[in-house]
Design a protein around this nucleic acid. Sequence first.
DNA 1: GCATTCACATACCGTGGGTATGTGAACGAC
DNA 2: GTCGTTCACATACCCACGGTATGTGAATGC
Lengths: 194, 194
Amino acid sequence: MTTRAAQRAETRRALLDEGRRRFARDGYHAVVLEEVARGIGVTKGAAYHHFGSKAGLFRAVVAEAQDRIGAGVAAAAEAHDDPWDQLVAGCRAFLAAGSDPEFQRIVLLDAPTVLGWNEWREMDEASSAAHLGEALSAVMAAGTIARQPVEPLTRLLSGAMNEAALWIAGTPDPAASVNAAMEALTRLLDGLRS
Amino acid sequence: MTTRAAQRAETRRALLDEGRRRFARDGYHAVVLEEVARGIGVTKGAAYHHFGSKAGLFRAVVAEAQDRIGAGVAAAAEAHDDPWDQLVAGCRAFLAAGSDPEFQRIVLLDAPTVLGWNEWREMDEASSAAHLGEALSAVMAAGTIARQPVEPLTRLLSGAMNEAALWIAGTPDPAASVNAAMEALTRLLDGLRS
DNA sequence: GCATTCACATACCGTGGGTATGTGAACGAC
DNA sequence: GTCGTTCACATACCCACGGTATGTGAATGC
């Protein structure tokens, strides 16, 4: 006798994992929900029971992936005390983690069009972009860079790093590209110092 | 008696226009090819005859939209003689033109996932991103900013502006947001000056 | 022990992309 | 001018897949 709550949690987790694998490998549209379910030994009905729709499962997968990246960025930043070092460490952590093909396909490519850009942006701001904005506010408060509106700058840098992550993954030597992107980004940030 | 070549060109053009309208309004997946065709008084068969697939029509629409933006950016840049002024004018032109909802939905949101990021990037580099790279090379050659690898910086700035364009269109006052984004971008670029 | 809830399974429908084939008008050769 | 060919579509059809409505049997609460 397995309790219902445990069974429910197990199935939900298995759907999330299998969905993430397939969404990352094939892209949202090419994924067929029935195969996701069959892949873990259940039927389509289970997926609809848990997530309501194909987009619902995808949304949950996106949220988990974003949270994971956001947590990694936050952890990298918190290893430093100086706000400036936190900002730079966070950026580097994002570029390294963001070049993961699973994250790219799901969060950077498919999510904005499947969920709509507004919802994607809200989710993004709830995870990694929020940290970026806070880090920028901190370096301004510390006087390291000139005070200026945070939001436009955040979106510029967020977009820059998202695109850089996609670029990095497509290069022959991603590790070297992370450094190249990071150098260019550092030059941009350094230029802001007052 | 209308000649076949003329008829062909006319139908092709009408499909491109109607497709662009619908792709922009409803998004790629929500568009049904038969309705695009019916919208201009032909059937699905015509669309397949001309473009081979739904993605084929979309690809052609994307190419035209990118060319249009690229031409606008180039024109804005060529109004100036100084490489630095050309760079700044091109960026502003892109931000203003890129906040057009048609361009956003088609080129920035749907195209990367429908056509694949690699093909999207190739098309992007063939139009607007190429101009950005050339402008950056020019200001380095002129000694206005320090010499550095062009490609990472181009991708960072290209991504920054794409994201900024999406952000701008979602704000209550897009015209003001263009200025805000442009100020932030100018600060970043100014920081690179040697 | 009995009614209820719940976590799915099963059966079914509609939509829409793709394809195979038909057709009539323009076209080139004579 | 006419005759066979080409071509720009139209027509008819297939089927994959998302969604829904309903069934079912085991856990749960009283």
